[in-house]
């Protein structure tokens, strides 16, 4: 039996995926802007952040309506709950992209530190890739992929650690590097947090498929905000 609910759920699903692609694009642009010290691109990201927030609110409103009007159960309910929870994770990941844009502007044209730049490029690439992958995993409702993506989060935490020790080392050698170092630290922390939110979305994909609430990377570093 074809249900009106199925049409609305398909629409909700498509809207969520679209928001995922939007957030993923913003993260990629934020990383590129930081690596290229492109303040104008960074400013554009900051100016457009409200679009993500508005989408989050629209999706939340839609899920509330669907719960009230259709009283979904079983996998229908799980799909709606997944979107309701994951949409907040996406929005917060978007906030960290905005933080990176702020850091980019603050960084101005300060001296690049090549070891740190390399680490940041690696982290940035890994983060943008994992955000794209988690959206794909959601679209395919692929819980195996979701489980394997949690591993990327661990690698990001490890890189974040490396950035931290490298920055502290450089600061000890050159006290004037303090501001620059703190920006590297913040951006690495933002990327690592995006990885955490990706892991949350992975957990919701697993819930969607299995009904089990799992904790991936419970011992993960950098889960404190």
């Amino acid at each position: 039996m074809r249900r009106l609910f199925d049409d609305e759920l398909a629409e909700l699903d498509a809207d969520f995926t679209e928001m995922g692609m939007l957030v993923s694009g913003v993260i990629r642009r934020a990383v590129d802007a930081f690596l290229e010290r492109d303040a104008a691109a960074a400013q554009q990201i900051i100016d457009e952040d409200h679009k993500i927030n508005e989408r989050e609110i629209a999706l939340e409103k839609k899920t509330f309506e669907m719960i009230a009007l259709y009283q979904p159960v079983t996998s229908d309910l799980r799909e709606i709950v997944t979107i309701l929870k994951a949409v907040s994770d996406l929005e917060r990941a978007g906030d960290h992209a905005r933080n990176i844009a702020h850091s980019t502007i603050k960084m101005g044209q300060k001296q690049k530190v090549s070891e740190l730049e390399q680490l940041m490029a690696k982290m940035g690439q890994m983060t943008t890739q994992t955000v794209e992958d988690v959206i794909t995993a959601y679209v395919n409702k692929d819980d195996h992929e979701a489980r394997s993506l949690a591993d990327v989060d661990r690698q990001l935490d490890h890189l974040n650690h490396q950035v931290r020790s490298e920055s502290y080392k450089d600061m000890r050698q050159d006290a004037t590097f303090e501001t620059g170092a703190s920006i590297y630290l913040n951006v690495a922390q933002d990327l690592s947090r995006i990885g955490d939110y990706v892991t949350n979305v992975c957990e919701w994909i697993i819930y969607l498929r299995s009904g089990q609430i799992v904790e991936l990377n419970s011992a993960s570093e950098g889960t404190e905000s």
């Binding site: 979904p72 159960v73 229908d76 309910l77 799980r78 009904g211």
Partner: peptide, 18 residues
């Protein structure tokens, strides 16, 4: 039964698919 039924027929019935 309402969150995660074991049987597909149960799920289809209580989700209003038939």
């Amino acid at each position: 039964i309402f969150m995660n039924p074991a049987n597909k027929q149960t799920e289809d019935y209580i989700s209003g698919r038939f």
